[in-house]
Nucleic acid binder design. Structure first.
Length: 616
DNA sequence: CTAGGGTTAG
């Protein structure tokens, strides 16, 4: 029975006041309790919310808390809830589940907040058994009208990988809000169902910034950056206010697409909107400028940053690496260490990448051993891949092979592919065959490996073997991906596929090429027809060679851009030897800088030379 | 009490 209180906390002696209101342990709580009983003071002087939380946090028996709480008039569930909330957010969320069990034993009736906090604990633990129990409680007590709770259940099943259950709950929900749809989209994307996610996105009755942003970043992660940019354009058109998260997502799309103009526009917009100082935005900007071939701009963003994270440093090192500035990448790394920033595994991938692209074998070896010794980072498959690439490119094929054999983890297709690439450059048929035998199992649908092997045979004039590989490729249903290059002119991307002469300016392109060819021949250019795999006449081979997509794109760019401006070309495959030699000469003949982004790095042609120093 | 962001080997 509740006693009508005549006394108050302030009428107690000071020591008792402290005891009653400042207890921090179960012992102090029991002392306070005993004191109140001795002095016949009402128990209600003890703050109820603290009784439960002290009992719970110190793992005291909950029945004591419950006995105490039974003296209070106010609904106890509120007190239990505040305790559940604390536990759910603590580092031992399982205690929240334990407390919930006790609460049920005492026949305390849960409310929707109780369910929410326990569900939060289950979500943190990915505890699907208890999560389902809470789901049952929600249904039993009729909380299905609480949308927030329903959304938490959706999110819970999504995180546990039970998309079909989530789908069932979603379909049964009596009401849905924008969060319900967003939760479904998030988990559909995570489970790899991009189409399903897009379906939900298009059926949503209303969308907010998060819906759009999530869909844009889903596009980027699923290799559809173009669709991501289109969504962004639509967003702008409708007038949805974008935020820094949207900017990060669309900048990643620009990076993948090489869409420099849009990237620059968003950079400007970020500065104006005030989130141009956000570290994540700046990190993404570095990556965007790097991948669009503007190393200068990337450097500037990096240098002007007030605060850098390990991601900023790693992105800059990786950027310098793919642009062939290995020494500078190593200097940036030393600077980072001097400033006391700890590298991570990704930093070392960038460093090893820099070394392998410039043939710094000793430095690479040193970094590989110091990453574990000095920084305690265990090498992963990517690091092993870099090392095999480092040795293979440098012609140390036996060492590369030995390295693979001694790897503590199973080599993957990329590792054997790196060895195969080295075998092509350094003409080692035996090891190439071994690498291919592994690749046939690890990555049988990748056209690149068949092409390289067939190329190696062709160079050694083993035509029968070369055609056997091509037949094998055909039998397995693997098709050679056509080369495709694009060049930006007046803000419009123009795409060229190898051998395509259907372009409206095809004649001008061809005239331009003939003209360049004359100048090139004066400088000693000889077409390198060895890169053409087809078994045809020499003249015919030249025709294929001259139809390479990057050559078409370059001629188109030269015709349609002002003299002196930089031409930026993107290619889906690697540049061939012949195009590489030709572009070096052309850069001197027309006195233009030509930046080519190929499948794995940049080539910056200027004054007759390439930034890769012909080591690729 | 519920949903979204950055660097990664060929």
């Amino acid at each position: 029975m509740q006693v009508i209180m005549s006394s108050s906390l302030h009428s107690l002696p000071w020591s008792a006041q402290t005891l009653v209101s400042n207890f921090n342990s179960p012992l102090e709580l029991k002392q306070a309790h005993a004191h109140l009983i001795k002095t016949k003071t009402p128990l209600s002087l003890i703050p109820p919310s603290r009784i439960a939380s002290v009992c719970a946090l110190s793992h005291l028996d909950f029945s004591y808390a419950h006995r105490l709480l039974a003296h209070f008039h106010q609904p106890q569930i509120v007190v239990w809830n505040s305790c559940l909330k604390t536990l759910a957010e603590s580092d031992s969320p399982f205690d929240a589940i334990l407390l919930f069990r006790r609460l049920r034993e005492f026949d305390v009736v849960p409310d929707s907040f109780t369910c929410a906090f326990v569900l939060k604990a289950c979500t943190a633990l990915l505890d699907d058994k208890n999560g389902k129990i809470i789901h049952g409680v929600v249904e039993k007590f009729g909380f299905q009208w609480n949308i927030v709770l329903q959304n938490m259940i959706l999110n819970f099943y999504g995180l546990c990988g039970e998309m079909s259950t989530a789908r069932l709950v979603f379909d049964k929900m009596p009401q849905r809000d924008v969060v319900s749809w967003n939760v479904m989209i998030t988990h559909l994307v995570k489970s790899g169902d991009f189409e399903g996610a897009y379906g939900f996105f298009s059926r949503m009755p209303e969308r907010n910034v998060r819906s759009w942003t999530m869909m844009i970043s889903a596009c980027v992660h699923c290799g559809k950056p173009k669709e991501g940019v289109e969504l962004f354009m639509e967003m702008e058109k409708i007038g949805v206010q974008v935020n820094e998260v949207t900017v990060v997502a669309v900048l990643s799309a620009c990076a993948d697409l090489g869409a420099l103009e849009l990237g620059m526009r968003i950079h400007e917009y970020s500065k104006r909107s005030g989130f141009g100082r956000n570290v994540r935005v700046l990190n993404t900007l570095i990556d965007m400028y790097v991948k669009c071939g503007c190393l200068e701009e990337a450097r500037r963003v990096f240098e002007e940053m007030e605060e850098r994270t390990i991601v900023s440093w790693s992105a800059m090192i990786q950027g310098l690496a793919i642009h062939g500035h290995a020494q500078e990448a190593l200097r940036v790394f030393s600077m980072m260490i001097e400033m006391g920033v700890m590298p991570n595994g990704v930093t070392f991938i960038g460093l090893l990448h820099a070394c392998s692209h410039m043939g710094l074998v000793d430095e690479g070896r040193r970094f590989f051993s110091c990453m574990t010794r000095d920084y305690g980072i265990i090498p992963e498959i990517e690091h092993y891949g870099c090392m095999v690439d480092l040795y293979s490119r440098a012609g140390l094929l036996q060492e590369a092979h030995e390295f693979i054999m001694n790897m503590p983890i199973k080599p993957n297709g990329v590792v054997w592919g790196a060895l195969l690439g080295g075998c092509k450059v350094h003409k080692n048929i035996e090891l190439a065959e071994e690498a291919t035998s592994h690749l046939a199992q690890l990555d049988p649908l990748n056209d690149g490996y068949y092409i390289v092997l067939s190329n190696i045979y062709a160079e050694a004039e083993r035509w029968e073997d070369a055609s056997r590989v091509r037949k094998l490729m055909k039998n397995r249903g693997v098709k050679k991906k056509p080369g495709c290059s694009s060049v930006m002119v007046d803000g419009v991307i123009h795409e060229f596929v190898a051998g395509d002469d259907s372009h409206s300016q095809a004649n001008e392109i061809s005239d331009m090429w003939e003209k360049l060819l004359d100048y090139m021949k004066l400088r000693g250019y000889k077409p390198d027809t060895s890169v053409v795999l087809l078994d045809v006449e020499e003249k015919e081979k030249e025709k294929f060679l001259y139809g390479h997509s990057e050559k078409l794109a370059l001629c188109f760019g030269l015709i349609n851009t002002p003299p002196g401006s930089v031409i930026r070309i993107m290619k889906n495959l690697r540049v061939c030897e012949d195009c590489h030699a030709a572009f070096k000469l052309i850069s001197a003949i027309v006195n233009r800088e030509i930046v080519v982004r190929d499948r794995n790095r940049f080539h910056c042609f200027k004054d007759g030379a390439c930034s890769c120093q012909d080591y690729w």
